[in-house]
Simulated scan of single mutants.
Amino acid sequence: MKEIVLFGEYLLRLTPPGNKKITQAENLEMHWAGSEANIAVSLATFKKSTRYITSLPSNSVGQAGIEQLHRYGVPTTIIEKEKGRQGLYYYESGVGARPGKVTYDREYSSFSMLEERDVNWDKIFNKAEWFHWSGITPALNENLAKICLEALKAAKEKGLLISADFNFRSTLWQYGKQSSEIMPKLLEYCDVILADVDAAKLYFNIHPDENNLVESTCSLLKEKLPNVKYIAMTMRYQNNASNEYVGYLWNNGAVVSSTTYKIDNIAERIGAGDAFMAGLIYGLHEQQPLQQVIEFATACGVMKHYITGDMNIASKEEIETIIQQKGSGRIIR
């Protein structure tokens, strides 16, 4: 089977237990994380052939991360660097009006020290049919932006389908380049994108109709990215005390939308976008009708809100149950 290849930094997340702030905590819980790794785990759980490309230190911490991926059936290609450490981030869970807070500690990580030609893309893509990346990687440093471009050119030459998540992280763009200087030329190679309104405005300086945000944003993005075939978005709406969550998928000038779900009693908001992206890739890879694609992707995002940690480890059957029950959460006996 041809592989879905994903490229990005594999991170170790440290979180205070019991919704504590870091200044209160006496110990930290450990979770493995990273946008592309999260997607790879979901796709492998859905029985898709995947390969995750990253760089890790050659020590017991890096080995523990690899073993976690292998536990979920994700093959890896690890580019080892003589120097470099494990990338970290710290996460304080949000509670009520207190928002969640991410603090990155990624400088001098093995992944951040990758250079052009460290990855043999030609060899990797010989067994691939799909390549996925996200806006997090080129945000880290200029070398990684160049590596993304190198990968995208190789993937396009091989005829792979290419997908990307906009994934704008304001605290990461610190190396003297603006995201609007880098992201548009990388996104030009993509067939499938997961966008959001704010990042779209920032990357492309577009001004969508505020009364028709989804459709107008997609139309303006298509003008900027003529090669894109599918544009997906998720939206959250505040309705009294509940959050409402819905997915949208644009193709060929038309938008289909998913069932709207009420999201209450959230266990973990981190990783919901990655879960949605995995569902989107799965549905499009299966060549499902677009309504079925967006229903499955959205249900993946919904499910992730109720799973602790960054990875959506729910099975395809569990996602389909959410769709059938329309999010009611009835007990299966």
Rank of each mutant, 00 (worst) to 15 (best):
M277R: 01
K304M: 04
A272W: 08
Q287E: 15
H285A: 05
I270N: 09
G273F: 06
G271Q: 12
Y306S: 01
V302K: 15
E286G: 04
Q287P: 02
M277G: 01
M277Q: 00
F296T: 04
Q288I: 03
H285D: 13
E295S: 12
G283V: 12
A299R: 07
Q288N: 11
H285T: 04
G301S: 06
A297S: 03
P289M: 07
I270V: 15
Q292D: 15
I270T: 14
A267C: 10
A272C: 13
I281V: 14
E286I: 08
T308A: 14
I294V: 15
F276Q: 02
R269T: 11
G273T: 08
T308I: 14
V302D: 06
L280V: 06
A278E: 01
A272P: 02
E286C: 14
A299T: 08
I266E: 05
D274K: 05
Q288Y: 03
E295D: 15
A278P: 01
P289K: 11
L290N: 00
L290I: 09
I270Q: 06
P289E: 09
E295R: 00
A278F: 01
D274L: 07
A299L: 06
Q292W: 07
K304Q: 04
G279W: 11
H285E: 10
M303A: 13
I294D: 03
I281K: 12
Q287Y: 11
P289C: 10
R269D: 11
L280F: 10
A272M: 10
A267K: 14
G301M: 07
H285S: 09
T298E: 12
G301P: 04
T298M: 11
G283D: 12
V293L: 03
A278T: 02
Q291V: 03
L284H: 05
Y282T: 00
Q292F: 05
A278K: 06
G279K: 14
T308S: 13
Q291P: 05
L290D: 01
K304E: 00
G271H: 11
G301K: 02
A267N: 12
C300F: 10
Y282F: 13
G271T: 11
E286K: 15
I266F: 07
M303Y: 13
F276K: 02
A299C: 03
A278L: 03
G301W: 04
Y282W: 04
Y306G: 00
I266T: 14
V293N: 03
Q291G: 13
R269K: 13
I307G: 07
V293A: 05
A275K: 04
C300V: 02
Q291M: 07
L284Q: 05
V302G: 07
F276S: 02
A275G: 09
V302R: 04
A272E: 12
Y306W: 07
F276A: 04
I307K: 10
K304V: 01
E268I: 08
A299W: 09
G271A: 10
E295K: 00
A275H: 07
Q291K: 15
R269M: 11
F276P: 03
A299Y: 06
H305Q: 13
A297I: 02
A297W: 06
Q291H: 13
C300A: 11
L284E: 01
